[in-house]
């Protein structure tokens, strides 16, 4: 890290972007070295593609109520006795195709996951930068809010927000609000991590000579922070974000169990598992095991990616 004084022109012309750092580094090399990481990346990508193109890939549309026939319910996977080739992985208690359910469910899970991480990261980075740079009363207030935030674990937040939303918007059905409730409540439980990381980094950088120098030559504080601090924290932020994505997906599933997840008419993977667990003892294992397996595979892949990313971006470990 250079810390000598720079001229304004030098500062502005130098590439500080994250991409350059990635390309400069041997991250790509480390990626190619680890087979496990490549598999994880492949699985993650497959899920993202499957989810994004679910309407075109899935054999059925599980959200189209008119296409669901109760008489098709509880069919086992196609290869089992009594299975039906129309439903390769069997059907659930309403007659929904499990395979289509998983594709659409992954779509819901990933959408909630990405959106909540994005929400948390945006909120956390902004507040962290501001708190770290401005410090003082503002910084203290932000960090106290962070403390309060930590006081409310995600589960409690979701239960509370869900309740408030339904109190405020009476008559709005679960289906319409569930996404937003989940994104906000999961996102709210994550932002503190970003804020703390970014704030710590900002506070270290703030006192470095180059920042003082940049300020002396009249570069606006916002720009300094953006150009200098952000690239420095991008690594840890990306690692946190990846791990958070995995946690968010699990959290959404957990909230389904508590009754505040995605509604059963628009199931996520978690909702499918929760519906299916009622049928675990009665022998209709496919309703919960396949979505469970899909969820585990997805989360595991994302976690492995996060792991690799952490090691790869940590220069000390290279």
């Amino acid at each position: 890290m250079t810390s000598g004084p720079e001229t304004r022109a030098e500062f502005l012309s130098k590439p500080h972007g994250f991409t350059t750092r990635v390309l400069d580094s041997d991250i790509l090399h480390s990626f190619k070295q680890s087979k496990l990481t490549m598999v994880a990346a492949f699985v993650t990508l497959a899920f993202i593609i499957g989810a994004a193109f679910a309407p075109w890939i899935a054999p059925h549309n599980p959200f189209d109520m008119a296409s669901i026939d109760l008489m098709d319910s509880l069919l086992p996977p196609a290869w089992e006795e009594g299975g039906d080739s129309r439903f390769p992985l069997g059907t659930d208690d309403q007659g929904r195709d499990i395979l289509s359910g998983i594709l659409y469910g992954a779509r819901a899970s990933l959408a909630v996951g990405f959106a909540s991480v994005l929400f948390a990261a945006t909120l956390g980075i902004t507040l962290g930068l501001a708190a770290g740079y401005l410090g003082g009363t503002f910084g203290t207030i932000v960090m106290r809010i962070a403390d309060i935030q930590l006081t409310f674990p995600s589960i409690l937040i979701a239960l509370l927000i869900d309740g408030v939303v339904h109190g405020l918007f009476e008559g709005v059905s679960r289906a319409d609000t569930a996404y937003w409730v989940l994104i906000v409540s999961i996102g709210l439980s994550f932002w503190v991590q970003y804020a703390r990381t970014v704030r710590a980094s900002t506070m270290v950088e703030r006192n470095k000579e180059y920042v003082q120098a940049a300020r002396l030559i009249g570069i606006p504080p916002g720009l300094i922070m953006l150009r200098h601090v952000l690239p420095n924290v991008m690594g840890p932020v990306l690692v946190i974000a990846t791990i958070n994505l995995a946690v968010a997906i699990i959290l959404e599933a957990t909230l389904s169990f508590l009754g505040v997840g995605m509604p059963s008419t628009q199931p996520s993977l978690g909702t499918l598992i929760d519906i299916g667990q009622d049928f675990l003892f009665s022998g209709e294992w496919w309703i919960t095991i396949f979505p469970g397996f899909a969820l585990a595979a997805l989360v595991l892949a994302v976690n492995l990616l996060g792991d690799w990313l952490r090691d790869a971006l940590n220069p000390k470990l290279r």
């Binding site: 978690g270 929760d274 667990q277 469970g292 976690n303």
Partner: peptide, 11 residues
């Protein structure tokens, strides 16, 4: 250990 956190706790 990752598998342990890749399944929802209720399951």
């Amino acid at each position: 250990s990752l598998v342990g956190i890749s399944l929802p706790p209720f399951l």
